[in-house]
């Protein structure tokens, strides 16, 4: 621990200590307060794109993963209104892609699915977009299924900032955004991605999967089959 934690913010009425430089999300996680999130991973620079972690600070909505904690902030997070909006965002993520949980290798280990469980999502609510997206099986050890990409850019950040390879990037705009890889052919097999890279480990959904591992752990014994995403992520925070 560095500086003493004498400063505090309040989340849902509970006093939470923080250090300078921490975001609201950092302070919350450290104090065992779960704020739903998908694009955030404490190992990487915050991104702020999924907006699931939106909280109300002094009456204004902000993404808690990017907003610095400031002394005296009154934060509302676990409210009916915010959870309802988070549920809508999760439903949006489901319908814009092609997420077919029962046939997905990642089922049970998927954070998108787990957040949906946590928020009580019973239906997609919106009409599915059924987009045409490319699947890339050219890599010997990894499968890239863009149908399940939620544009969190965790693989982009990991490959660029940790692996020093910049294998992944986002191209396109708006709903036409697409995950691209670093090869003239556009194929993952022509990049220098290795299955041991950090980028190969961080996908919260089943967009980037290790080949030949799909069912080494049977369905029913997977991470979120028994524990909520809240317990899992708060547990990881304290490991």
């Amino acid at each position: 621990m560095g500086a003493p934690m004498s400063k505090t913010i309040t989340i849902d009425g509970k006093s939470i200590p923080f250090k300078d430089g921490q975001t609201i999300m950092d302070a919350a996680m450290a104090a065992d307060v779960y704020i739903p999130h998908l694009c955030h991973n404490p190992e990487f620079k915050p991104h702020g794109s999924c907006k699931l972690c939106t909280v109300k600070v002094n009456g204004r909505n902000v993404a808690s993963c990017t907003m610095p904690a400031v002394e005296g902030q009154q934060v509302l997070s676990d409210t009916l209104e915010l959870n309802d909006e988070r549920l809508s965002l999760t439903q949006m993520l489901f319908v814009e892609g092609n997420h077919i949980c029962p046939s997905c290798e990642k089922s049970g280990n998927c954070q998108l699915q787990a957040v949906a469980y946590y928020l009580g999502m019973m239906s997609p609510h919106y009409n599915h977009f059924y987009p045409q997206r490319e699947v890339d099986a050219s890599h010997p050890d990894m499968l890239l299924d863009r149908n399940r990409c939620i544009y969190c850019e965790l693989c982009v950040r990991a490959s660029r900032d940790v692996d020093g390879k910049s294998v992944f990037g986002l191209s396109g705009r708006g709903i036409g955004s697409t995950l691209v890889v670093n090869s003239t052919s556009g194929l993952l097999g022509d990049t220098n991605l290795a299955a041991t890279d950090k980028a190969a480990q961080v996908c919260p959904t089943g967009a980037l999967l290790k080949k030949r591992q799909g069912f080494t752990v049977p369905i029913g014994q997977r991470i979120f089959d028994h524990r909520t995403i809240k317990d899992v992520q708060l547990g990881e925070e304290h490991e």
């Binding site: 794109s49 907006k51 965002l89 949006m92 993520l93 319908v95 814009e96 544009y151 708006g174 709903i175």
Partner: peptide
């Protein structure tokens, strides 16, 4: 708006499409 959304955040990327539809 659906055409011009940059696509960075979920509510705008998907929400502007839903509006359009």
């Amino acid at each position: 708006f659906a055409h011009e959304s940059c696509g960075f955040c979920t509510p705008c990327r998907v929400g502007t499409q839903l509006q359009k539809k």
